[in-house]
Design a protein around this nucleic acid. Structure first.
Ligand code: FES
Ligand code: FES
Lengths: 139, 139
DNA sequence: CGATATTCCTATTATTCCGATAGGAATTGG
DNA sequence: CCAATTCCTATCGGAATAATAGGAATATCG
């Protein structure tokens, strides 16, 4: 359960790479991180649209972080690659629930979403890439 | 992201139903909870194997909770339908990581798993269904 | 007993999502 | 111009999920 798609795993590996290496091309990142190169291109483009990385085209182009690594929260990365955290559709839009207004499990799903959101919001790229990472989310 | 399979959503709906109605057949539960009947049969069987419900065959058979609802943690339900919480394979088995021993994101994934596990462990069926035992429309 | 309602078992199909690939257009530096 | 790059769009294959199908085993009741 809660298998995280490889797309998101790749995005995170690529960002860690950029945090350490400053700037690199998609092909170089793909090789170093063992990711399908063409697939990674699309992922980096999503990260760019989300304002997490910037890119330069042309001969000596490549990608770099758009902000400092402590400003990049993991929840933003996840949302860039997969959209909002939504264990079940109804957490955003109650009307999609077949059980109607009296639906009992809804609070439970919202609680789960909150738990995940809170954790992902609490960790930044710097926490991963630096040696200062501490495990948050467990109190 | 983190879309929860319908199987698990159905399992929870079915358990809420049983918590309120004490005993019912798969067909009745399916109708009340708007779940494909044959699909639900298989799900209830998984819950039985996990010791969450019990069943009686034959003419006036059906399913009932195997324990009181406060003893049924949601993490047990999720594990019964989907197996262990494992955002990425490496949280259980480090050797599957292509990046080897120096893998940086691993602590992050373990933290995510922990956040989800902790939440699911903290909620019981009773928390969802409430403690008032109500008989829903006797047939 | 015999009819019926149920769980239980196994196999198959349908659907959806994901990962990856393909080919090339646009851009830029040298 | 040329080469390296990002960027765009389309498609394919495979895996996982959801659902269906048919029936065997079991129990109840009249
Ligand atoms: S409102 Fe979410 S399952 Fe009903
Ligand atoms: S050990 Fe998990 S991604 Fe490397």
């Amino acid at each position: 359960m809660f298998q995280v798609p490889t797309k998101t795993q790749y995005a995170i590996r690529a960002l860690v790479h950029l945090a350490l290496k400053e700037s690199d091309s998609a092909a170089k990142i793909a090789e170093a991180q063992m990711i399908s190169p063409k697939y990674l291109e699309g992922i980096l483009n999503q990260l760019k649209l989300a304002g997490i990385v910037t890119s330069d085209r042309g001969r000596s182009g490549g990608y770099r972080l758009a902000k400092s690594s402590e400003q990049i929260r993991m929840i933003d990365v996840v949302q860039a690659t997969e959209g909002a955290i939504r264990p079940v559709d109804c957490v955003d839009n109650r009307s999609v629930c077949v059980m109607g207004a009296t639906c009992i499990p809804r609070k439970f799903w919202i609680g789960l979403k909150t738990a995940v959101d809170d954790y992902l919001s609490s960790v930044t790229l710097k926490d991963l890439a630096g040696d200062t990472f501490v495990q948050i989310g467990k109190e």
